[in-house]
Every structure is written in C-alpha cells, then in structure tokens.
Write a protein that binds this DNA or RNA. Sequence first.
RNA 1: GCGGGCGUGGUGGAAUUGGUAGACACACCAGACUUAGGAUCUGGAGGCGAAAGCCAUGGGGGUUCGAGUCCCUUCGCCCGUACCA
Length: 846
Amino acid sequence: MSTRYNFRDNEAKWQKAWDEASIYQAHATSPKYYVLEMWPYPSGRLHMGHVRNYTIGDVIARYKRSCGYSVLHPMGWDAFGLPAENAAIQQKVHPQTWTLENIRLMKEEIKSLGISYDWSREIFSCSPVYYVHEQKMFLEFLKKGLAYRKESFVNWDPVEGSVLANEQVIDGKGWRSGAPIERRKLSQWFLKITAFAQELLEDLEKLKHWPEQVKTMQANWIGRSEGARIQFPLINQKDVLEVFTTRPDTIFGASFLGISTDHPFVENLAKGFPALQAFMAECHATGTSQKELDTTEKKGFNTGLSVQHPFLKDVVLPVYVTNFVLMDYGTGVVFGCPAHDVRDYEFAQKYDLSIIPVVKGPEEEGLPYEGDGILINSQFLNGLTTKEAKEEVIKRLVREKIGTSEISYKLRDWGISRQRYWGCPIPIIHCATCGVVPVPEEQLPVKLPQDVSFDQPGNPLELHPTWKNVECPKCHKPAERETDTFDTFVDSSWYFARFCSPHALQPFEKDKAEFWMPVDQYIGGIEHAILHLLYSRFFTKALRSCGYWDISEPFQNLLTQGMVCHETYRDQTGSWLYPHEVEKQGAAFVKSSNGSPVKVGRSEKMSKSKCNVVPAAKIVDEYGADTIRLFMLSDSPPERDFEWTEAGIEGSWRYLNKIWRLVTGNLDEIQSVKLSDAPGHFTPEALSLRKLTHKTIHYVTQDIEQFHYNRYVARLREFSNVLEDFTPSEASERWALSEALHTLVLTMSPALPHLAEELWAELGHPPFVVNQPWPKPQEDLLTVDQVTLAIQINGKMRGTCKIAPDLGKDAARALILDLPFVKAQVQNTMIKKFIYVPGKIVNVVY
RNA sequence: GCGGGCGUGGUGGAAUUGGUAGACACACCAGACUUAGGAUCUGGAGGCGAAAGCCAUGGGGGUUCGAGUCCCUUCGCCCGUACCA
C-alpha cells in the first residue's frame, strides 16, 4: 500500500475505461434528466471559470445517474465570434483554422477533467451541418413576420471604415484607430422578440427554480409600463406629435416637448435647417451603448416650433430636439414635466423652462418629486390621487379623441445583423428588381467562403467577388448576397435543442426534443442573466409558433455561478505579473526572476489583461482532475464568487491523500466483513458510527440537491475526520466501519469520480462505482434522543442544557428554572416571559 | 445614468431561513515523529481581558423576548446595460 495516491495513472486509466464502456452515452429512457452547462467560446485555453462550471454540472449529472435517471449531459462549441477575426488580423491565421485548433486544445483539457459528457453528441456552431438549420429557421421566421428589416445605428470607425462592437469602443474612440466613433445608420435584420414581450414576462412566474434576481432583471429589462399616448398639435402646422408617457397625471406640469434626434419628423425638419443638422451631427458623435448615451451630457435644441397643450387652449409648449429621448422606446417624443422628473428638471434649469409642481407628496418634498401624491395646480385633477388622476386623464383624452391608454415595453427588437465574416451567413439575396429574396431552401446552406483575406478593413464578405455576386433566384438577373452574418447569440439560442438529436437532418427530431426538453438544470455565469437567457426563451417560443415543437420554456432550473477570482500582482514598474512569476518570501511577495518586491492587489475576476489567471491545464497536470474539482466545490457556494489560492488547491490535494490512506489503510480490518450479513447487535461505538454514516448520507444528499456543494464537501470531511479515529475492536464495529467506508466512497463519487472508482476497486468490487445506486439513509438511525438547548436570559446567551428534543413546555420550564446558573441570575424575581422553542432555544425574561 | 447583487475572524466560508455567530477548511502558533515529505499526527486560536465578563456579521438607526438574517439609511465592491461571449 502506497501512502501517496497516484492520480496520474488512475485518472488516465478510469477515463479510458469509461470511454471504452461508453457509459456516459445518453439513452432516452424515463425518468430523464437533462443537465447542461453553457457551451464555451473556444478561446484556446480552459480557464478556471470553465472548470468551475463543468464541475458543478458534473456533480449533479453523476448524482442523478446514481439516482436512476437517464442523464443527458452534452458538450459543444459556440465557435463563431469576434475573437477569431481579431486573431486573423493580428496573427494572419484563418478564423476557421484558429477556431478548430482552439477546439482541439480545449477538448483535450476538458477530457482530462473526467467530466461525464456524452461526446457522441458534440456539436459545432461554425459547421454548416449546424448552421443550415439556423438559416432555415430564419426563413421560417421571415414567413411568419418574426424577422424584418429596418434601419438602425452602429458604431462607425471613420478611420478604419468599419463597424465596431461596443467592446471595441473605448471612451468614444475606436480601439485600434483611436478615432472618435460616430453613430451611423445601416439597414439591418431584426427578430421580433417584442411580439413575445408579454409572454416572456408572464412566463417568468413559471420558472420556479430560477434565481429571483435573474427573474427580476429580466422583468425590468422587458420593462412593461402602462401609460398613455397623447396628441400635441403643432401650432401653425398640420402635423401632430404623439407622446408616450407613464405619468399622464402630470400633464398640467408639462413645460416642453422633447423629441428624439432620430425621429422621422426631426429628420424631415432638418432638411434646409443647417443649425439643426449640426446639432444632430453633434449628438451622433458618440457610440451606441446605453451607458454612453445615458452618461453623455443632456442637450437640447430649440426648434422654434411649439405645440398646443391638450387641455389648456392658451398654453403652448416649446419643442426641443434632445439627445436623451430614445427613438426605440414609446413614440420617440416625451413631454417634459420638470417638477416630477429628475432628467426634465435638469433640462428645465439648463434651458430656463418653467417648473410647475402638480403633485403634492405626503410630506414636504423638495423638487423634483417623483413619487405619488395628491394633484394640485391641475384643473379637473385637483385633489385626486396619482392613480385616480391617471385614469381621469385617460378618460378625458379618449372622450376628446386626443389620446388613448397604452402599454409600452422597454424591450426592443433583437438586431441580428453583424458586418462580420466569422458568423452564420444570412440566407438572403438582394435584387434590384425583386428586392429582398430568400435563398431557396434547396440551395441551403449558404456556406461561408474559405478564400477570404483580412488585409483590408471591414467585412471580407463585402469584398469577395464570386461569393457576393450571384443570380437572383426569382428573375435570374445579377444580384447580391446579403454579406452580414448572424449575431452569435442566434447560434446559442437553440443549441440545447440540437443536443437532443445532434445528427438529425432537421434541426432536431420533435419527439426526441420533447422527450429531453426542457433542460432540467442549466448552469452558467451570472453575466448571461439577461441577453442569452432571454434570447433562448424567445427562440423557444418562436420555434413553437412555427410548429417546430410544443415547448415554451427551455430551462426548468437555472443556476448562475459566480466568477473565479485571484489576487493581482504588479512589479515596481507597475506591470502586471502572472501568479507563476511571483513567489512568497515570508509575508511578502517578490518577483521570481530578480527578487524585486511585488505589490499585491486585491482579488479580481481572472482575466488575461491583469495576468491573474491560473491555467487549468497546469493544475490538472500537477494535482490531477479530482483535486481541482474538489477545490472548485469546497470553498464557496456555486453562486458566489470563488477565490483561487495556491493554499486551497494544496489543501484539496492533502484531503485526497487522506481519503486514500483512510480507505486503503482499513482494508485488512474489513476484509472479512460481508455487508449483506448485518450483525444482530451493535456495540454503542458501532451504533454511534452508523448514526453518523446515515446522518452523512442524509445531509450530503440534501446538500447536493440544493447545490450547497461547499457544505457537501464539509460533511465528507467531518465524516472522514471521525473515521480516522475509529478503530474497530469486534465484529459489529468492523461491519459498521465497512459500511461507513463504502458510504464515503459512494457519496464522494460525484465530486471525485476517479478516486472513488479506484477505491471501489480496492474495496473488492467490479467497475463501475458510477453505476452504483445512490445510498439511502436508514430512517431509524436518524433520530436523536438528546439535543443541546441554548438558554438565554433576557435575550443574552447564558448557557446550554441537554434535553429531549420534544419535551413539553411546562416540563422544560420546571427543568430550566431549576438549573443553578439560571436560579443564580433570576433569583426570586418574577418571570415575565418564558419563550421555549423545542429543540432550539429558551429565553427567560424577568 | 439605469437595473440586479454582494459585504461575517488573518483568509475562503457555515449558520436547519428570526433562535448557541464563526461548522468545514486555508494560513498561523506550539509540540510529536521521521526512512526530511508536495509529509503525517496532537493541541491552540474572533477581539479585549488574569478571570468573571464585555465587544463583535461594512457604518448608522429601527422592529423583536431574540437580528448575520426583517425594515430604513449610508459607504464600498461586483455583474448587466441590447455588436465581448
């Protein structure tokens, strides 16, 4: 018996054995369990965030397998995207070559972790076999009116002459060129997610096991609000401007109209109005991100036009073109009520507009006051509450035919066009005669051409002569292919369905998909709380309305994991250092290469830019898969951030060896034990061990079910701490020890599959431990006959007392008031209150 | 700016969801053992204090017999913000 566990040989051995037995291949037999981790973007190296994600998923997959479920646990590649193009530009390597090589490397690393994936279902978003279905779906959506074309803004880099992602715009400038970015309009494809706004909102209630904060974020993102649409006729003109407002009650506080720079009326007005044109250009000299738009200084341009107040015939309001009214929300026009809106208040002060308070709050409030209250200065609304006033205004608007009630959503349609090469081509042909023509189904897939160059800026597809120039399928005259590709979120909005029948000729076989779906447990980073998850929910519903299946929600349960963090290090020059470049000298850190002092920064999310990354492959190589898996589970609960430390991984490695010694060191003791022959009598020591064994099963099961993996590991450690001190002296104790060791191996197997497999063999069993049923606790061993009751006197902890857990209140009172330390404190004072929570606490108030 | 979170010893965290704050670990200290190892084993440990005890869950206030947990307020950090994935 070796005292050191040989992870290198064992992990390779068992991974090979699992592979050869194909034990992780999913078979569609009930009951089913579909566990899915978010598929990775193949960046080339596995990082700790991936390891954490896959480990969390693997524990539940293995646990459910032991519980008798038929488990589907697949893995694939979110292989399209911007980094491949950046690599192409920087390293002169084709995006496909770069991507496939990255996949090869990452797959090798994932495999070394021993995750129970069914690799026969592996899929790649960049393969035409995958994206052909996406192109067909898009054409279906087009037929159903769920896809359409409209103009919208992109970040335009005037120096590069290309479109930039928000990420590539830094402080309003292009990341490569440094040139100020402008917003430019392009005609682009959109998916009508707003058609499902109400359903996406309502169905959140069905998602019982989604984190509340994710549901709240999605609900706020959808942003349903009830309000009114009100007409404001322009003075001396025929036109009418329509406003959407959620505060129709404040209509008498209106002092101006704000209209979006992108409103058709403004675009029209700007013709022959150079000052306005200049203002609009000024507003467009910014990127498209919401954060940038919101934090840019609020500006307005007085058009000189004015509108009539809907209820006050002698009041006219000036019309300002503004940079803070969004064309995408409501009607693109707002009325400004400075007394009751912070933004309007600032605007009114800047442009010296009147501020009329019309809502009186419950207390003396300063302005602006955005809360509810009683209406003042408001004609027929005076004295009404905010809620009543809203109803009354709408009633009048409808009666006078100058407005209606309206429900509005913040959610905007999903722009899916990207002016990039490395994505799924949009299957459309533009013809001068026939307009927008879908590529006929028999010509699908539209494959990406291989022969492209990144020597010039912009999308290489634009510059590709033979791919771009085609014949119109309808009139056969020369036409052009759509050169935009899909947003990569499209690829990840249905991959979970493809896994159900990954080799099917259609996107997925309906019966297979309806058998496996919905995903029973979805696991991924919190950063996807809104976009990816909302798009996937939308796609599921859109596919339903196109007749693909009868599924409405893709993910039954959701776990959002926290980030993996690490300390940051900088040398004297301020450059970031990798953890492997520094070493500890006493309490301080120094640079390994020259011994110079290192400044230790706070722990942050692992990122290449700050060099605080630890490559997973290195750790697997040094400590093995089980050690890294154990550490990933031990410290933090999955939804919290995780702190990576060298000490932590060491600690996990030591624990692995401890288990190894514990089991192998007791083999002789339990050699003669037959677990099927339970002894008739147990010594008190044996009984007490058995109680712990069954309590451990009980709690470990609960902890795994609830994803309290750190507690699960803590229970295993507590259990093994006791086992270490247990020396059997007769038969029933040897039996109890054998039961305990078997339980330890079985319960640790979801976390430490390789070690468990090896020890299962050492215990004399044929493979595989992963196919063993999950142990069940014996109920009669879970009862306790005494608990430690906490005793408070006047709310302060004063002592404890051993007591039967179900003792009645009167008996408990007599017993406790008779305790010496209670008597001493209370003496003969009258007891005012005696609070008794059986099994937990007593509070004596005197 | 807006939306959502998080904050507990030197460190990561635990606390049956309003009932003994610090489980389980890491780091540390003291000791044992030795075929000096990536060891292992035993003991200690929130702070102050000789002790009794007092103080402690980012800060301040409140509700309660009782608050890490609920409410108000404030500070700090993190995620998302629609073209990073």
